[in-house]
Simulated scan of single mutants.
Amino acid sequence: MDIIRYATLKAHPWRNGGGVTREVASGYSPGAEASTTPAGTAQDPDWDWRVSIAEVSKAGAFSAFPGMDRVLTVLEGELLLLSVDGVEHPLEKYRPFRFSGDADSAGALPTGDIRDLNVITRRGVFKGYTSIIELSKKRAHPVFAGQLGILLQGQATVGAGTAGSEPGTAPAVGTAAATAPAAVAEPVTLDRYDAVVGSDTASPEILGRGFLAVVSIDRMDGEP
């Protein structure tokens, strides 16, 4: 059972000074065609999917990610006004929004600073999904392979399940993240924004009160 502790993640300032990003996890498909984007840019070819949490303190343009799709979810703050190719979308807390990384996008902060969850996937290779669920103390929520469970609010513990899921329910995603999660064996307490790495063998199970983001990264095998 693996946990990625939010407190250990390094903050990377944006080039425009509008915020910072902490990468939770990333990976790639070894069989995917190499990107032509130069290394070290915002569209780093070293990953085909990335999950990150950003703190946004200033209105301004978002980085473009050509050939990728994005799912953005506001975690803290009341409202983000996201402009995508000239169309404004008011994004409220815990409401995931999907848009193209090719789009000309920018954000405004009418009610102050926000924190958001970003899921970015290379189009045609992976597809990302974000679901917000309410936790229960009586019924554990499993996290399967190809998923991350991120505690957004409240109190929760995670323990290893007693059995795996049915075969083929969720494929593994690429390679492990550059950020090495800490391995644990016994049920432990999660802090806010800690991420549980899913597995189909003794799938981690989360119990508690509050809200959990379940991020799924699905491989697009057989699709153009």
Rank of each mutant, 00 (worst) to 15 (best):
residue 14 W to M: 08
residue 166 E to K: 08
residue 40 G to P: 09
residue 143 V to L: 09
residue 33 E to T: 11
residue 138 K to C: 00
residue 224 P to G: 00
residue 80 L to W: 01
residue 209 R to F: 01
residue 50 R to C: 06
residue 130 T to E: 07
residue 189 T to L: 11
residue 152 L to Q: 07
residue 213 A to M: 03
residue 69 D to Y: 02
residue 61 A to T: 13
residue 64 A to N: 07
residue 125 V to S: 01
residue 99 F to H: 10
residue 104 D to I: 03
residue 100 S to E: 08
residue 165 S to H: 06
residue 154 G to H: 02
residue 7 A to S: 15
residue 14 W to C: 05
residue 1 M to E: 12
residue 140 A to S: 15
residue 79 L to E: 14
residue 90 P to M: 05
residue 182 A to G: 13
residue 82 L to A: 04
residue 193 Y to I: 05
residue 124 G to Y: 02
residue 141 H to G: 00
residue 199 S to P: 04
residue 81 L to Y: 04
residue 54 A to P: 09
residue 160 A to R: 14
residue 202 A to T: 12
residue 189 T to A: 14
residue 122 R to V: 01
residue 187 P to I: 04
residue 59 A to I: 00
residue 68 M to F: 15
residue 137 K to E: 14
residue 223 E to N: 02
residue 111 T to W: 02
residue 182 A to M: 06
residue 75 L to D: 00
residue 122 R to Y: 05
residue 211 F to Y: 10
residue 206 I to F: 08
residue 19 G to I: 10
residue 100 S to V: 03
residue 219 R to T: 14
residue 26 S to H: 10
residue 43 Q to H: 13
residue 86 G to V: 09
residue 26 S to V: 00
residue 47 W to E: 02
residue 35 S to D: 13
residue 93 K to T: 08
residue 42 A to W: 08
residue 26 S to E: 11
residue 194 D to E: 09
residue 19 G to W: 13
residue 220 M to P: 00
residue 179 T to G: 06
residue 80 L to Y: 00
residue 175 T to N: 14
residue 120 I to F: 07
residue 180 A to I: 13
residue 53 I to A: 06
residue 155 Q to G: 01
residue 57 S to L: 11
residue 155 Q to N: 13
residue 147 Q to N: 02
residue 104 D to L: 10
residue 181 P to D: 06
residue 124 G to R: 04
residue 46 D to F: 11
residue 208 G to Q: 03
residue 73 T to W: 08
residue 60 G to L: 01
residue 7 A to M: 05
residue 194 D to N: 10
residue 56 V to M: 12
residue 76 E to Q: 15
residue 71 V to G: 07
residue 178 A to R: 14
residue 28 Y to K: 09
residue 28 Y to I: 02
residue 223 E to Y: 12
residue 51 V to R: 03
residue 59 A to H: 01
residue 88 E to L: 05
residue 156 A to Y: 11
residue 211 F to R: 15
residue 46 D to H: 14
residue 75 L to P: 04
residue 196 V to P: 06
residue 89 H to R: 11
residue 106 A to V: 02
residue 23 E to T: 15
residue 130 T to S: 07
residue 42 A to G: 02
residue 81 L to E: 15
residue 134 E to L: 00
residue 212 L to S: 10
residue 181 P to R: 12
residue 90 P to D: 11
residue 115 R to F: 00
residue 80 L to K: 01
residue 118 N to A: 12
residue 142 P to W: 13
residue 122 R to C: 08
residue 4 I to A: 09
residue 104 D to T: 10
residue 165 S to D: 02
residue 78 E to I: 00
residue 65 F to H: 07
residue 27 G to M: 08
residue 62 F to S: 03
residue 44 D to M: 07
residue 216 S to L: 02
residue 7 A to G: 01
residue 29 S to D: 15
residue 130 T to V: 15
residue 57 S to N: 08
residue 204 P to G: 10
residue 176 A to Y: 02
residue 118 N to V: 13
residue 179 T to P: 00
residue 35 S to C: 01
residue 52 S to D: 08
residue 85 D to V: 08
residue 162 T to W: 01
residue 166 E to F: 12
residue 164 G to R: 03
residue 4 I to V: 15
residue 194 D to G: 08
residue 51 V to K: 11
residue 175 T to Y: 03
residue 54 A to V: 13
residue 68 M to E: 04
residue 76 E to A: 13
residue 6 Y to N: 08
residue 203 S to K: 03
residue 44 D to Y: 12
residue 136 S to A: 05
residue 129 Y to C: 06
residue 91 L to G: 12
residue 201 T to M: 03
residue 144 F to P: 00
residue 158 V to P: 11
